[in-house]
Amino acid sequence: MTTERSKWNVTDIPDQSGRTAVVTGANSGLGIATVEALAGAGAHVVLAVRDVKRGEAAAAGVHGSVEVRRLDLADLASVREFAAGWRGGLDLLVNNAGVMNVPESSTKDGFEMQFGTNHLGHFALTNLLLPHITDRVVTVSSGMHKTPGSPRIHFDNLNLTGEYAPVTAYSQSKLANLLFTLELQRRLAESGSSVRALAAHPGYAATNLQSHDASALRRAFMWAGNRFMAQDSKAGALPTLYAAVQDLPGASYVGPDGLGEMRGAPTLVGRSAAASDPATARRLWTVSEELTGVTFSQSSALTGA
């Protein structure tokens, strides 16, 4: 049996024939690498993307069963439209899309862009799709959830109005991803559902996220890091894939096994104390329901129950 410390790779993915997956942010980077691996193993994969033309161009290079559907996580109306259009079962939802260290801006609904896209958009999407989900939800977080400066959820100012800093906003959103996973798993277990919520992080992977950094200095540093230090997107997608197909407990967190969890084979990894606090996770869930208007009660008819 494959152990968590083995050099696990895409050839270890079990046959995915007959399974359906949705991958958000799937037209480049970690997203398209995840799509390629799942489709290559036999799954039907839906690329949920903001730019359909770019999504179709990406899908054209994938060997396997894929389709493209529009989803803008920075617009709750788009999230609702995507979920309302879903028919039938959904084995796997991969909440992969994200923005990183962008200049201060807002989503269509007025939320800080990184918190609104990375957390609230996926929060709403997951809960709206949950009646269809039969196996698991995998949400992509980051090692940045615990560095620098002990990230926290700024409940008194979630939009960071008047105190915005790109790295602070990104770290908050990635911490929110882990707290969301923790509370989602608690609610699923409490409801008697067999659906599992898991999280993963890619380590230091070379993707196009870094090219949108608000700081020219950080962009230059990340360019050098991407060129000389980072693993490629296919290696960066392995923790997500491991969480998506391995038999792991709910609320598991997967990352690379190398030094500092920067690169390496996927394994179970630890999270910060802030990301492990059930009281904060419940509070964030309540606030997220209020902000999005989407509640877990809407998902009470759980297919996986």
Rank of each mutant, 00 (worst) to 15 (best):
L158A: 00
L284G: 02
G162K: 11
T168Q: 12
V45Q: 10
L160H: 11
Y242P: 01
L158C: 00
R227P: 07
G203I: 07
T280W: 00
G264F: 08
S193A: 13
D109E: 07
A243N: 06
A48T: 07
N157D: 11
R87M: 10
S141W: 04
T134D: 06
R263N: 10
H145E: 03
I133T: 07
A83H: 04
N27H: 11
G293K: 10
R187Q: 12
N95W: 06
S173V: 05
V46L: 10
R186N: 11
P148W: 06
G116K: 02
R218G: 01
S78W: 02
R70V: 12
G40A: 05
L93P: 11
T3D: 13
E163Q: 15
S252M: 03
S272F: 01
V52K: 12
L76Q: 13
T161Q: 14
W223L: 13
S215H: 08
A237S: 09
L259G: 08
Q231R: 10
V79W: 02
A243Q: 03
M1V: 14
A26Y: 04
R136A: 11
K174L: 02
A265T: 03
V10I: 14
T303R: 15
P103S: 10
L160E: 02
L158K: 01
V52P: 01
P148N: 09
A124W: 03
S150M: 12
V140T: 15
F155H: 08
R54I: 06
A124P: 10
L73M: 11
A265Q: 01
G149M: 14
A243R: 05
Q172D: 03
R19F: 09
I133Y: 04
A230L: 03
F115P: 00
T161C: 01
A37C: 04
V140F: 00
D156N: 11
N27R: 08
P239K: 02
A275P: 02
V195Y: 05
L241R: 03
T267K: 08
L198K: 03
D257Q: 09
A97T: 09
R218P: 00
P202W: 09
K146G: 09
G110M: 11
S106C: 08
D72R: 01
A200R: 07
G18I: 09
L92N: 07
L93C: 11
L188K: 01
L175Q: 00
G18C: 06
G258F: 05
A281D: 07
A265H: 13
A214F: 03
V62A: 09
A197Q: 06
D15E: 12
A305P: 08
A74N: 12
T303N: 11
M100H: 12
T161K: 14
V245K: 02
H212A: 15
A273C: 01
A214Q: 09
A235F: 01
K53G: 12
A197G: 14
A279V: 13
V102H: 03
T11S: 15
R283A: 00
V254E: 05
E36D: 12
A275D: 00
R70K: 15
P239Q: 10
Q185I: 06
H132D: 09
Y204F: 15
H119R: 00
L198E: 04
G255C: 03
R70C: 14
T134E: 10
A26H: 06
E289Y: 02
H132G: 05
R186C: 00
L179N: 02
F82C: 10
Q185P: 10
T161N: 14
T168K: 15
G143S: 11
A199W: 05
G162H: 07
G162A: 04
T107D: 09
Q210T: 14
G192S: 04
F296I: 05
A26C: 04
